[in-house]
Each structure stands twice: as C-alpha cells, then as structure tokens.
C-alpha cells in the first residue's frame, strides 16, 4: 500500500484571500454581537472589508472574501444553512452583483460611499424579497420597508465613509503579507 500524501499548493493569492476573509469574519462576529432593536437591521461592518478589497484587488477577490465570510460566519454563529444564513447569502449575492456594476462607474465621481449605499440597498432588497417569498409570505412585511431602507442608507454611508477613509489614509491597508 502506498502512502498517499495530500498536498495543497497554495498561491499567494489564496493566502491573501484567506487573510482578508478572516478580517471580514471577525467583523461579522462583532456585527452579530451588537444588539439592535429590529431583527434584520445590522451595521454590516464586514462590508468595509469587502469595499476595500474591491478597491484594491477587484471584484473577483471581493466575491471570494464575501463568500467565505458568509459561509464561515454562518458556521461560527451556528446558523449555517438556517434561514438566517440564506438571508445573509442572498444579501451578499445581490450586493456583489450591484457592486460589480458600481465599480464601473467613473471613479472620479463615484467612490466607496456610492458603492456602499448601492450595495446596502441591493442587500436589503434581496433579503426582503427572500423573506417575502419564503419566510413571511405576506405583504405586511412591506410595512417595514421604510425602516429597512433608512437603516440601509445610514449604515451604507457610514461603512462607505470608513472604507473611503481607510483607503485614503492607509494606502497599505490590507496589502496582506503573502510570504
């Protein structure tokens, strides 16, 4: 019998994605620990990482980081494959799609703040649609649209500003050590 050795060869790109995802997961855990009055309203701090990754490394890396964050964050919070996980997944997928379009906007005029606001609205519309179709099949849900939209706008601006400021003041931020 030959002994088989499984060897994973990792590229510097893999290391970078893993480190960035770890940062995002850390923020996702902090996010979950912050108490807020309405279920579903969260600051979405880990999106700051997504925004910075988007600006630094492009959309494909952002998809990796965001996807790993959703899955690993779900596992760590014990909600993997639960409704909360699918809500988070739907939100992430929709905001990534919108971000893919948003980064094509001219950078001179539209920065991380715009991306963040657009992504936040995409996130909440995806979640509301999933909730309407699957979890709460009832139009009364739309009573909550103004609250969710306002929260999305507020947290979208705040996260976008934080990302923009980190990008401006720390040019090396998240230039992960890939040795």
């Amino acid at each position: 019998m030959t002994r088989s050795v499984i060897e994973l060869t990792t590229t510097p790109e893999d290391h970078r994605i893993a480190q960035l995802a770890a940062a995002a997961i850390g923020l996702a855990l902090i996010d979950a620990a912050i108490p807020l009055p309405l279920p579903g309203v969260k600051p979405g701090l880990s999106n700051i990482v997504t925004l910075i990754v988007l600006a630094r490394y492009g959309w494909a890396t952002a998809v990796w980081v965001s996807g790993l964050r959703v899955i690993a964050g779900g596992l760590l919070l014990g909600q993997f494959l639960s409704p909360g996980f699918f809500m988070s997944l739907t939100g992430a997928v929709l905001s990534l799609l919108v971000l893919g379009l948003a980064i094509r906007l001219p950078r001179r005029w539209f920065g991380p703040v715009s991306w963040s606001i657009l992504a936040a609205f995409a996130h909440i519309s995806g979640q509301l649609l999933l909730a309407r179709v699957w979890l709460i099949p009832h139009n009364g849900l739309f009573y909550l649209v103004p609250l969710f939209a306002s929260a999305a706008l507020a947290f979208g601006i705040i996260n976008g500003l934080i990302a923009a400021r980190l990008l401006a003041e720390l040019p090396d931020i998240l230039l992960a050590d890939t040795r």
Binding site: F110, G111, V113, I117, P146, L153
Partner: peptide, 23 residues
Amino acid sequence: WLALFRHGDWLVSLLGISFCAAS
C-alpha cells in the same frame, strides 16, 4: 469626513434619502 464624499456620492446619497422619504 465630508471631504471623502465625491460629487457622485452626494448624488447617490440624495437618491437614497429621497427613496427613504418616499417609502
């Protein structure tokens, strides 16, 4: 902080605010 807003960011924020106000 305000210096971080680009022109388009103001536009997107305004659109967001009007959407919320209308909702």
